[in-house]
Design a protein around this nucleic acid. Structure first.
Lengths: 234, 234
DNA sequence: TAAATTTGATGTGTCGACAATTTGTTTTAA
DNA sequence: TTAAAACAAATTGTCGACACATCAAATTTA
């Protein structure tokens, strides 16, 4: 599963391309979360100079996929439960506000397009019920469109340019394939309705609940996993 | 006026130091907002190689003080009214949530310290009424403490590591020296109270209103400036 | 033996030079 | 005269080499 980020400018320079490759590798877990990143090693692997690689690393740091310490080096961020919850709390704040702004700033055409998209998703969902794969893609599409609809560069950059890389990483690595597809779909529908009514306050509230529900869902799932592990040990 | 960012790690490498110098220069307006940044020129000025300068530029980009385009170069972000309003809307979302989390996660000691700080500020304010200088510093102190009190790394990094550089830049360049000192002080007091009561919902609401009021205050001031300019022309 | 120091290997930070791209100017052609 | 093409200057992207800091193993010392 890999979905392009609609706000990410297409790669022109080699540093850009290598950045995208490493980004992909980290998100998908091919480069283990928490592992150290060796500059000479990676430079050799991608057949580029260290300068170019460092440029790529800088971009990875910008979207919070790696962390650097002076004179020591870079590490891939490690996926922890605390980190995941912190991420979702931040999403709740930012996407909630983005949704409010979208209700105020989206053009009528944008709203029509979103409704059409959601309708299309609803139909494929009926066909492929239970198969969360496409729904997953649809979910991200939905969120991206609302964020872009806020017409707020600051919000767009923070959420799409930074948070969502991490969101995708956690989704991949914790194997969260949207176990609540139909409920999420209904929530999406309500949100669109609020935006369509230009009700910013309600739109923000619904989006916050939507993300909070997702967070609680994860918390439960993890608690369940721990329980299973505990039982397996016995 | 320049205030250290408590979350910014102290500079160890030369790239770090140059970063801080340029950051300072941009925030204070010594390097004009919107102007192009020439790598050879700056490298020569600071007597460092272009590689080192580029490392510094990368950090400036991370805190949204410059923008880079491939094969073209870097520009200092330009301070526009729209940008300022977008920034404050983002602040409202993030700091509101940070304040809610602070109410949940701050230790009792942290709360006691904050109350003491606010009390001290109140006393200096009585002495130096009208002199917004210290109050300004106190305002940032207050906000930083709450953000850190959220104990949420994601929020802390986004707000302190990125947004606040821009906030300070706008404050310097638009000359916004807290014209509503005493009102802000009272609002701060209410917020602390809500945190002290562990009332996350109220804390978030008050912080959001506090920032929204600040935003509206700016909008008014700018509208007033425009009016003055208009009258001067006649 | 244990603690402290030295030393060596590895990795990061910085440098100067070359290659590739953009931009503004000049030249050419319609 | 205007528009397109070719050229020249300057700037950014990339490279390989060297300087310096860090960490671990080996040596010294108490």
């Amino acid at each position: 599963m890999y979905l392009a980020n609609p706000t990410q400018p297409k790669a022109v320079t080699t540093a850009d391309k290598v950045f995208e490759q490493i980004q992909h590798a980290i998100v998908e877990g091919d480069i283990a979360s928490g592992s150290k990143v060796s500059e000479p090693e990676l430079a050799k692997y991608y057949q580029i100079s260290r300068s170019t690689l460092r440029e790529a690393l800088n971009r990875l740091e910008k979207c919070h996929l790696i962390e650097r310490k002076a004179n020591v080096g870079s590490r891939v961020v490690d996926c922890t439960i605390e980190g995941l919850l912190e991420l979702y709390i931040t999403r709740e704040a930012l996407e909630g506000m983005a949704c409010r702004q979208a209700a105020l700033n989206m053009s009528d055409k944008e709203i029509v397009d979103m409704k059409a998209m959601l309708k299309a998703h609803g139909q494929t969902q009926e066909l492929k019920d239970g198969v969360a794969y496409y729904q997953e893609e649809g979910d991200l599409d939905f969120h991206y469109k609302i964020i872009l609809g806020s017409h707020n560069k600051q919000l767009i950059d923070l959420i799409c340019g930074q948070l969502y890389h991490l969101v995708r990483m956690y989704r991949c690595q914790f194997g969260m394939n949207s176990p609540r597809a139909s409920r999420a779909f209904n929530e999406h529908f309500q949100i669109i309705q609020a935006i369509s009514d230009r009700d910013g306050e309600l739109a923000e509230m619904l989006m916050r609940r939507h993300i909070a529900a997702s967070r609680k869902n994860i918390e439960n799932k993890i608690a369940q996993q721990k329980l299973t592990e505990f039982n397996d040990k016995k």
